[in-house]
Structures are given as structure tokens and as C-alpha cells.
Amino acid sequence: MLYARRATVAAFLLPTFIIIALINLYPIFYTANLSFTNKNAFHLDNYHYIGTQNYQDVIQQTGGAFIHVLLITTLYVVACVGIYVSLGLITAMALNHPRVKGKGIWSILLILPWAVPTFITALIWKFLYDYNFGPINQFIRVITHNPNAGIGWLDQPVAAFIAVVVVNIWMSYPFFMTISLGALQSIPPELLEAARVDGATGWQRFRFVMLPLLRPALLPATILSTITTFQMFNTVYLITQGGPFTTGNINDPGATEFLIVYMYNRVQNTGNIFINYGHVATVAVLVFAVLLVLMLASLRFTNLTKEVKR
């Protein structure tokens, strides 16, 4: 800890403070304020406060669309996080096996999906899922000997949901593989040997020796990834645009229209004469509230804040 004049401290803080206040804090208050007004295409300049009317509208009157979006987003997050954390851990354990050779090569090959820019990942997979020209359906045609076979990966709600989950697993497991491998290598082999001598089975050694030692590394990473998966945009929007939209009603969310994609689709319709800025701002505040709750929960469960107390 250093002592300095107030002016010096202020000088160091000023650049950060200006940008954060202008680009982070002001917009949050602006949006929160907007969510209590009736600003829309008909009241662009002469809008006024209408209390919590927007919140009632968004939660009740839009056919429960927001609640539906929240539910499918949760399902998406649980499926993605559950699978990529497990897959990353299993891959790391396979690589960490004492008799596996060429660990360096294996891990470089397995880590490559992480290095691909996310908008390119979206492009690649959209190509793979293409109904006519994508290799996945072409492969299905080869093994079924049926030239017309194929799955409408991006046209059917369930298939599209699975498709975007697979993409997220593809791009996210290398991160967990890397984290788990680092943590596994820091476990002293004597501990596992001692458990073996004491007669612990393979499963027991995993469950009661390895897992508790992996927890400090995996838990914060899992929680942070949960939050980023909640905010997933590129690899969903650029593949499905939130669709398929099967009901024909523009207010009904699509099968992969998760929170941020839903938000984007609402905002993007700025040309729409019926745009209701108050409603969009309300959805924004609700999305932020959901993410905030997740963040605060993660602060409780991990030691992320220990730095603050130093």
C-alpha cells in the first residue's frame, strides 16, 4: 500500500471513471428510466412516466413470451454447461492418464475449436447443418442409401435446439479441458495411490479424492461460463436468427430465441412503426436482473471477492 496525495489518486482513477460513468453507468440508468415510460413510435418526444405498467405488460400480456424465453434459455444453459464441463473433465482425465502418449499433440488438436473466432464458428456450423449441401445430411444420405434423407437441422424446433447446443459444446469444452488438466496435474499422485492402497475403487477415487481437489478450479470457471452462456449471442443468432419461428405470430419467440437473441430481435426492429421503446427497455432491465442474480449468487459461492478484501 502506498500513500499519495488525493490529486494523484484522482488522476490515476480519472480515465477509468469517465469511461465507466459515460458508457456503463449512464446507459443503465437511462434504460431503467425508459422502462417506466410510455415511449414508443407514437410518443417519441412527448412520452411520460407510466409507473410499472411496462413490467405488467411484459410479464403478463405478451402471452408470457418473456417467461417462455427465460425457460428455454435456462434449458439451453443447463444442457450446454452440464455437457461441456463433463466433456472437458473427461477429456482432461483421458489426457492425464499415465499411459497415454503424445499428450502435447492431443491437447493442441483438441484445443483448436477454442481458437476459432465465434462468428466463424457460427458460419462453419451453419454450413455443416445446411439441409441440402451440408456434410451432416450428406453423410446421413450415404449411410441410409436414401438420396432424399436428411434432418431439417435449422427448420425443426427440437433439431435446431440440439444443433445450437452442439455448437456451444464444440467451442466451449476446450476451455474446461485446459482448466481441468491444469487442476488434475496439480493433484499429488501419492493421494490417489494412498486411496488405492486403502482399497478405494476407481469411482471412489474420482468422487472422494479427485473431485474435491478439482472443485476450487472448476467451480468459479463453471459459474462464469454459466453467465456467458446466458449471454450467448453469436453462435445462436448467426446460425438460426432465434428461429425456427413456427407459430406465425410475430410475438411468439422462436425455438432458439434465447434472452440476448430475443433482446436483439426486439431492438433490431427499429424500423418497425409499432416499436415500443418502453417495452424493450423493460425486457433489458429484466434480463439484467436475471444476470445480476446469477452474478451475486456466484460471488457467494466462490472466492472471487477475496481480492476485494485485500
Binding site: Y30, L34, M263, Y264, V267, Y277, V280, A281, V287, L291
Partner: peptide, 9 residues
């Protein structure tokens, strides 16, 4: 945790 998209206006 605040996605910039939410503050687009």
C-alpha cells in the same frame, strides 16, 4: 454481467 446490447438506445 451487463451485456452492452441492453443499453443500445
Amino acid at each position: 454481467t451487463f451485456p452492452g446490447l441492453l443499453a443500445i438506445y
